[in-house]
Design a protein around this nucleic acid. Structure first.
Length: 933
RNA sequence: GGGGCGUUAGCUCAGUUGGUAGAGCACCGUGUUCACACCGCGGGGGUCACUGGUUCGAGUCCAGUACGCCCCACCA
């Protein structure tokens, strides 16, 4: 140990409390047990607790000294790899972020203290729709790929006046630049929160899902999937958002209840006088009708199977066929098949080989069509086109209204008998599929998209899901259920701009038509590429878009295509095989359950398809924050809490205390009270530490019965907390530690040892007596400091700021001596364990500590009943307890009596009392309130 | 319709292998001001949603019911 080490300790930059801590830091006796130190002059400790100053100072120290740096030189076995969720950079800061990120950080901090080398990166998920949408709103611009690029163009936040004008159209490169500008600001806001919260990430491992490495990894993933035959392109019905004008995957779809109506419409039957009435909620799709179906056993419709129905208005003959999928109970039992009203239409369309009559355009408006030309057909072309002219160009909603009007007119009838709409629409509430971020229902449009085959790998996916240890465990079932219920392959391509380009070109034939069956996929060595500006090998720019040349795929990947590679992004898959081997698979994936079916699922899928492995061994799923009415907090409900003001009020440690009080996976009602309790705990720790460290006695071996009994209890606590942390039950560990701290340490042990630790009453003692008293005092002082040292470390994962502050007063220098400043951090200290207790013999009676507390409590209760102060001196006392209990009491008697300020005490055996119980038979108080000792 | 989670004190939540119901807050009483009023001590308060079953014994295990929340499916 050298002085220079201790004087350069953490926080040496100044601030309250930094001036004096060093003089007594080094243990006076080199043979003293570790972590035991000489008293600190209380005058040199901070008088007040300044949370803001403390957290700013320690965040700076942690960053400057690299306390959380990953050490690439250490082995995989002693490394703990975290697959941190990259927050959506353009999302708003939400109290839920504090909740889930803290839970992960608590786990990480524990692992670090057990000696693990932590790999804990931070990424920003900035590619994708949320950024585009925010950029569009913020600058009031729209991307138009046909607009020419203007170098150096910069935008400012749009004013209210600007917003009254139409959005400015900008080129794709300008739009992407605007995205980059804005995400930088958004990422900064998150970064501030993470520092404020004390997330122990290694900021050297930062990435953006749009950065070069991420683009390379995502495109490499595509290449690998292509080479293995897992991806394919297909021109098929796909779920489509008409506002974003973009394809959507099954995982991004959610049902929303919508008001609709059943319309009953009469169809004629070719060559018969009979007619049928179909029920539909989408009459505007009548022009897209390609068939009619009913259940094969439905007697009402059996005679018509194989015949053709004729639609009203458009007079299109369509086949009537039986299908098990039709439900005789629903509507009229017979329905029209359209291209496409829903997923079942797609099945019928495929199974029956029906026509494709697509009437809805990519913008959600009715396309122009001609009933004189295939695939549109009519027995009365002029009339059909006239009817269609009424709806062409209209939105779905407008078209529906107009069609209903037309159907009320007998002129539109295909049967010649009255209006096709046989009764007034019957309003219903039904659920409709929406893109999760969309405002209008999805349509099924036939478009060319890239897909990743998943349906053929369900069994393997489920097997990988079984390999992952889910916390809480029931999330495993959720993974299995979602996987089993998958019904379509993963649609990878998006018709958007700010994302990773699909690294593909298509050859153009002599007529300038793309050959989608023979895509030119970029070469691995060329990645990342942008096919709209980069060239496929062996081609020249002059061939772009020319017959016989090539054309770029204009699309980008689904944002999850990149996000599902976060473990591989961190491991530098494909460019650094050694690093990849060290970091993949990861140990833990913390995440929320809102992105279970996307992020968790796709990440497992990618790891399976690429390396036939799991992406991580443990998945930690955080719960929701509910508002006090038990509704999920969300921006649209306007009940979102912003974290920073709360952190300012209660401190970052209190915020973390709140988050760490909830178990993994547990949805928790927001309760500000828990923050208050956290703040109270932080203050109490501050005060208790000051008190313990300012006890003047010199440390000595822990020999006293009460001290040994306390240490035994402390040891039990450490074992329990360690077990719980190992099982990711940080909330239990926190609760146990907190309970111990209040009920076994501050309120009890501190009170019981106060007098002895100060060595009071020994002022006149000499010789052997003085030596004994000094030994008794030193034993208490040593146990108090051991207790503080252990408790501070047990609390450190949850309360990193206050524990670091306390640690720096007394324990840091000893630990860090001879090493770097980083080693002095409590967060690099050894997790409490056997080494802390090695020097302390077990107590003579395991119950000594509880007996002492019970006796003190009995006397306190007698004081409370008499309405006198706890500090009131007791002139004489008669205590009763079971004989065995009295035997144990003898060993701790002097501590109890001095804590209770009892001058004279007699004990009586009482068989009526249970073991460990005390009763006060008689109590007599001193005349005056006792002077404080 | 299928699956999952939950229901314990006024509130927020613990309750690990079945063994006499816990904490904090709130409430009531009381004390105290050189570690701490962001305090101490004490007190009241629960048919553990309901019904059955297993067991010497069930908050805990099993079956069912009700209510709440979540996911999925259906949505002509």
């Amino acid at each position: 140990m050298s002085e220079s080490d201790s004087s350069g300790g953490p926080g040496g930059s100044g601030g309250p409390g930094r001036s004096g801590g060093q003089s007594g830091v080094i243990g006076a006796d080199p043979s003293a047990p570790r972590a035991l130190v000489r008293a600190i002059d209380p005058g040199k400790l901070p008088k007040y607790f300044d949370a803001d100053e403390i957290s700013a100072r320690w965040d700076r120290f942690w960053q400057d000294e690299g306390v959380y740096h990953y050490d690439a030189a250490r082995s995989r076995a002693e490394t703990f790899v975290v697959d941190t969720p990259p927050p959506t950079a353009s999302g708003s800061l939400h109290i839920g972020h504090v909740f889930s990120y803290t839970q992960a950080d608590v786990v990480v901090r524990y692992k670090r203290m057990t000696g693990m080398n932590i790999f804990y990166p931070m990424g920003w998920d900035d590619n994708g729709l949320p950024t585009e949408r925010r950029v569009q709103n913020y600058y009031h611009i729209r991307c138009d790929p046909n607009t020419p690029y203007e170098p150096g163009l910069r935008f400012e936040q749009a004013s209210a006046a600007d917003r009254k004008q139409p959005a400015r159209l900008v080129s794709r490169p300008n739009f992407i630049e605007a995205c980059f500008d804005l995400i930088r600001e958004d990422e900064q806001a998150f970064s501030v929160l993470w520092h404020r919260l004390g997330l122990s990430v290694d900021w050297r491992q930062e990435y953006q899902t749009i950065d070069e490495n991420c683009r390379r990894v995502a495109q490499r993933s595509f290449l690998d999937l292509w080479q293995k035959g897992h991806v394919y392109t297909s021109d098929a019905p796909t779920m489509w958002d008409i506002d974003f004008q973009c394809a959507v995957a099954q995982a991004e779809v959610e049902d929303k209840p919508v008001a609709g109506a059943f319309h009953q419409i009469e169809f004629a039957i070719e060559g018969e006088s009979a007619r049928i009435v179909i029920a539909t909620t989408r009459p505007e799709l009548l022009a897209a009708c390609v068939g009619v179906t009913a259940h094969p056993n439905d007697e009402r419709y059996k005679p018509f199977f194989g015949k053709r129905a004729i639609t009203p208005l458009f007079r299109t003959p369509v086949p009537i066929f039986p299908s098990e999928l039709a439900d005789p109970e629903k509507g009229t039992g017979i329905l029209m098949v359209c291209t496409f009203g829903d997923q079942t239409d797609v099945q019928w369309w495929r199974a029956e080989g029906l026509e494709l009559r697509q009437v809805i355009g990519s913008d959600g408006r009715l396309r122009a069509v001609d009933f004189g030309k295939a695939p549109f057909a009519s027995l009365d072309v002029a009339r059909a086109n006239a009817a269609y002219a009424e709806i062409a160009g209209k939105s779905v909603k407008q078209a529906q209204a107009r069609i209903v009007e037309l159907l009320r007119d007998p002129a539109g009838s295909a049967t010649g008998t009255g209006a096709p709409l046989v009764r007034e629409p019957e309003p219903i509430q039904h659920s409709v599929k929406f893109f999760e971020k969309g405002d209008r229902p999805l349509e099924l449009l036939t478009t060319r998209q890239w897909f990743c085959r998943l349906l053929d790998r369900k069994a393997d996916l489920i097997a990988k899901g079984e390999e992952v240890e889910w916390h809480p465990a029931h999330m495993r079932a959720r993974f299995r259920d979602w996987t089993e219920n998958l019904s379509i392959d993963w649609c990878l391509s998006r018709q958007r701009y700010f994302g990773v380009p699909i690294p593909v070109w298509y050859p153009l034939d002599a007529n300038g038509r793309p050959d989608y069956d023979h895509p030119i996929v970029a070469e691995a060595s060329a990645l990342p590429v942008d096919p709209t500006t980069d060239l496929p090998r062996g081609h020249s720019e002059a061939q772009r878009g020319k017959p016989g040349g090539f054309v770029a795929d204009p699309d980008i990947f689904d944002t999850w295509f990149t996000s599902s590679l976060t473990p591989q992004i961190s491991s530098h898959w494909g460019t650094d095989p050694e690093r990849h081997a060290r970091l993949f698979p990861a140990d833990v994936r913390p995440q929320g359950h809102d992105i279970f079916r996307t992020w968790a699922f796709y990440t497992i899928a990618k790891a399976l398809l690429h390396e036939n492995d799991v992406p991580w061994r443990h998945a930690l799923i955080s719960g929701w924050i509910l508002d006090p009415d038990r509704k999920k907090m969300s921006k649209s409900k306007g009940n979102v809490m912003t974290p920073l003001p709360l952190i300012e009020t209660y401190t970052a440690d209190a915020a973390r205390y709140w988050a760490a009080s909830a178990r993994l996976g547990a949805d928790t009602a927001f309760d500000e009270n828990v923050w208050k309790i956290g703040k109270r705990l932080v203050t109490k720790l501050f005060n208790a530490a000051k008190f313990v460290l300012s006890q003047p006695g010199e440390v000595a071996p822990i020999t006293h019965e009460l001290d040994r009994a306390f240490v035994a209890k402390l040891r039990e606590l450490v074992e329990a907390a360690t077990r719980n942390f190992d099982a990711y039950q940080y909330a239990h560990a926190l609760q146990e530690t907190e309970t111990f701290f209040w009920t076994r340490f501050t309120d009890t042990y501190l009170e019981l040892t106060k007098t002895r630790a100060r060595g009071e009453g020994t002022g006149t003692a000499t010789g052997r007596e003085a030596a004994l008293a000094s030994q008794a005092s030193g034993s208490a002082v040593a146990a108090l400091r051991l207790g503080l040292s252990v408790l501070v470390r047990l609390f450190a994962p949850v309360l990193p700021f206050i524990t670091e502050e306390i640690w720096s007063w007394a324990f840091a220098a000893e630990q860090g001596a001879g090493g770097s400043a980083a080693r002095m951090s409590v967060h690099r200290a050894a997790w409490p364990g056997a080494a802390d207790f090695r020097g302390t013999p077990p107590p003579s009676h395991p119950e000594s500590f509880d007996v002492a507390i019970a006796a003190l409590a009995a006397i306190n209760k007698a004081k409370a009943d008499a309405a006198v102060s706890m500090g009131r001196e007791v002139a004489s006392l008669t205590l009763q307890a079971a004989p065995a209990t009295l035997g144990i009491f003898a060993g701790v008697r002097s501590d109890v009596l001095s804590a209770a300020r009892v001058t004279r005490c007699e004990v009586e055996a009482s068989a009526a009392l249970a073991p460990g119980e005390f009763a006060v038979k008689a109590i007599e108080f001193a005349d005056r309130p006792g002077g404080d000792t």
